[in-house]
Design a protein around this nucleic acid. Structure first.
Lengths: 258, 258
DNA sequence: ACAAAAGTGTTCGATCTACACCCATGT
DNA sequence: ACATGGGTGTAGATCGAACACTTTTGT
């Protein structure tokens, strides 16, 4: 959505190539350096923060639509997005009370009450995890702001997005116990401390230093390298890599990590 | 949908009180006597078997809509329906190739290509488990047939409903490990053998006779009664009931049953 | 020598698995 | 007495939590 012509076309004819009444929203968790953040956006036409989301093209699969929307709105590409729940309570997002003037200012086009964008929608929720330090946020024309917020200092979100975040966080943590993650959040070669901190932060709780790596190694997910990394005045930690084969096997079959 | 007037109104004006482009489908598993079945319906206007489903009223919550649809189509009421996944692949259900004549015969009304029912839809999947021997199936006017099929002898289903069934079965089995079930599938007072057979059938595998009840009793979910049931030429088994309080607690908090 | 961080072992108890065994009942 | 299904006990293996210990490195 980068030219006025595109916006006009979207507003007037969008129902022809998007599926009306159905949207999606993405809770994108960002990890770096023991911090867990969430990506939020502020639409020019809406006061307050939201999850990034949008509509689904008639030719797209759902997960493709989720990826496209995240990329268009925030610049982030190639996320591993997971569907977690669909939201459809009748009062989840009342667009019939929207501020017509504000929308005109923001979009440069008048939206009438019978426009396809105004009708009730259900929304499919996705989540993903990424390394926020590796992302470069780019806004599109309809986005006023786009930023990472610490998971413990989230503002009140619009619509039912607070509920979405809490469900997404829950789904993500449950999945963590059953599928390996990390390949996108860690450098290719990493230390045990790094992956340990990653899991502690994502799960929001302490994990025993000694027991935690045992499981990953017993599962064969981690391979120890002969290299070490110098970290100054301390013992040099070994470097590890994921065993790609075992890793993708575990992604398919599931594992149990307590 | 029990009069021609209702059908006409649904076809012509349904988009006013239902959300277009969004439907739901329900995989209803039925257990009885060590058999696991699935409820399928055959629409008058469609060759072949489908999951029961339908549209969502603009005033309904999703789970309410699922319950209403199941009740309308099959007569079954008060199911505990669980959302498991939303399906939206572009080619999941091509209604643009529908058989116009057949639809006319079935519904008594001509549906044009621009009717709200013909456009592409996404579908929200729900599943539930019930005791099929306690249900009385009732069809509505648009349903030609409605029956329980053994889970291992399912016909090929229409649209993407085969995929839905396999995802529903997987979701149901995963949930079984984390939440207690049984209150709707067993008589109020039941024997250990009965609940054992239930779990074996739903999970599709053998569970150790001795270890299985220990867990349920250790969790406090089962209470032993002082009564026994006479079963003819064998030792009389004890009767058990669920501890309602512990049971609903476990439904909320989750448990682990291996 | 020391501080700080990396990394390893070891114990204890809980839990799971498999299997063998005893009990009750009607014929 | 015995066949049949109900029901219990236990030995061994495995798993997980907790915590103390050793190793490495730069100052």
């Amino acid at each position: 959505m980068n030219t006025q012509a595109e916006i006009d076309d979207f507003v007037l004819n969008g129902h022809l190539y998007y599926i009306p009444h159905v949207s999606l929203d993405c809770a994108i968790f960002g990890y770096h350096d023991q911090q867990l953040k969430l990506l939020l956006i502020k639409h020019k036409a809406i006061d307050g923060w939201c999850l990034p989301g949008g509509y689904i093209k008639r030719t797209e699969k759902l997960v493709e639509a989720a990826n496209r929307n995240v990329k268009e709105r925030t610049g982030i590409d190639n996320l591993f997005l997971q569907q977690f729940k669909t939201f459809g309570d009748p009062n989840r997002a009342r667009m019939d009370e929207f501020d017509e003037e504000k929308w005109f200012e923001a979009t440069g086009i008048r939206i009438t009450k019978d426009n396809w964008l105004i009708d009730q929608t259900i929304s499919i929720g996705f989540y993903a995890i990424t390394d926020f330090s590796k992302t470069e946020l780019q806004k599109d024309m309809l986005i006023e702001d786009c930023a990472w917020f610490d998971i413990n200092e989230l503002p009140k979100l619009e619509f039912d997005h607070d509920e979405m975040v809490s469900e997404a966080l829950h789904a993500m943590r449950v999945q963590l116990y059953h599928y390996p993650i990390g390949i996108n959040m860690l450098p290719e070669k990493f230390t045990l401390s790094e992956i340990h901190a990653l899991y502690e932060t994502l799960l929001g709780k302490k994990l025993d230093v000694s027991n935690f790596p045992k499981k990953l190694i017993a599962l064969g997910l981690l391979k120890k390298l002969d290299e070490k990394r110098s970290i100054g005045a301390h013992r040099s930690p070994h470097l590890y890599v994921f065993d790609k084969e075992k890793y993708s096997q575990a992604l398919k079959d599931g594992v149990v990590l307590s």
